[in-house]
Design a protein around this nucleic acid. Structure first.
Lengths: 210, 210
DNA sequence: TGTACATCAGTGAACGCGCGTTCACTGATGTAC
DNA sequence: TGTACATCAGTGAACGCGCGTTCACTGATGTAC
């Protein structure tokens, strides 16, 4: 997780340029705090996140983050938006080259669940609306892009959302979302990708009009 | 929420028997703490729960709950198990009299989502495994009963789980679970029961063998 | 090219918060004889 | 029927915790002239 930001962090704070590590200005504290926050999520989960700990890991005083994110909610919102962006990237990579609707839906569903599995705390944060600034445009845009990708695969049409989404689209989103969470929350053991394909097939049985 | 327990609480602590309210022994502190905990959940959500606050509402010192539940996790586990019991009751009531498989699946799905909608914090707690004692037999039994009800409706066969559940069962559970959470977490506005029926119809398109 | 100065990005100490849990204790209950 | 006593279910003060945020401040940067 946070590979790109970790490399920035390493360049600025790491051993190689240790001579610069005692300086007053950080260089790219914003990126370092995001990377630290994502690391904390991965290690301790959403409940284990704290702004102080992120500051600590970035090598900075507890008051420093306020200059970049306002408060804890601000940092979490940025991290959540990045999560949606990565989810979209993961789905795009999974569906790359798949032409048929059925193959695309299976690939997107697999990618959705795989993302949740690979980054459980990050995935959870994305839905913890009480911890986020839900009005943030970047967050809304990132979440909307992920949804649009599913929608396009299921209906074959691009978004724009003049009307409410079709039930088949909501069914697809619900099924991958519910499946991912039931596994993450320990309601059932992970039955594996082949099993998930069979579950996703339930979305493909007919093309009945909605 | 917690109507039965509230009545106990009222009888023991309420105005009508106020003369007894100064006594040393509570009478049914266990039930009062459960009721208080459920009230806190309803008012403040899972994050807003605290054992001290439950004790406060039960009119008791902060150390008292330890005698009945050990620690905070113990109380939350009991409350979560009660949640599963009520979910099962809600589904049973919704499906009562429905004979056909399609009607039963729709009714159970509607009940599942309605329960989540009516008791969002309670529903959320039920899946917050890090807050619960997942090895608790009562919790496991209650969760298993809810799942078995869905399973029976989808496959027509009673549980016992000699083998892994069929993909169609997991699909049903995933779709209602995901749908409920997407709405609770604000990912989409609630489109209403008629819309949900159309989503659930995706589970009923054919009876293809799994 | 040099200098004044506004602005920005940090410091670090402190505040107040509510929490879960522990501790030594005591009042009430109910059972054995 | 009365009494001794073990057990149970409470008290309330205290501890230590880490948190988010505020505060007055200062070091570094970069721009205007």
């Amino acid at each position: 997780m946070s590979d790109d930001l970790n490399s920035v962090k390493k360049n600025l704070n790491g051993d190689q340029i240790g001579a610069r590590s005692g300086r007053y200005h950080h260089g790219d504290l914003r990126a370092a705090l995001i990377a630290a926050g994502e690391d904390i999520l991965a290690e301790r989960g959403v409940e284990g996140f704290s702004l102080r700990e992120a500051a600590r890991r970035a090598g900075v005083s507890p008051a420093a983050p306020a200059h970049h994110f306002g408060d804890a909610r601000g940092l979490l919102t940025v991290i959540a938006a990045r999560g949606f962006e990565r989810l979209t990237e993961t789905m795009a990579a999974g569906a790359k080259g798949k032409k048929k609707a059925a193959a695309r839906v299976r690939a997107l569903g697999q990618a959705y669940v795989a993302f949740a599995h690979a980054h459980p705390a990050h995935f959870n944060l994305m839905w913890r609306r009480t911890l986020l600034d839900n009005d943030d445009p970047a967050l809304q845009a990132a979440a909307g892009a992920a949804f649009a990708m599913l929608e396009e695969a299921v209906t074959g049409a691009a978004g724009g959302h003049p009307k409410a989404p079709a039930p088949s689209v909501v069914a697809a989103w619900s099924i991958v979302h519910g499946y991912a969470l039931l596994i993450l929350d320990g309601a059932m053991p992970d039955p594996g990708a082949a099993y998930l394909d069979k579950v996703l097939d339930r979305l493909l049985l007919t093309d009945r009009a909605d």
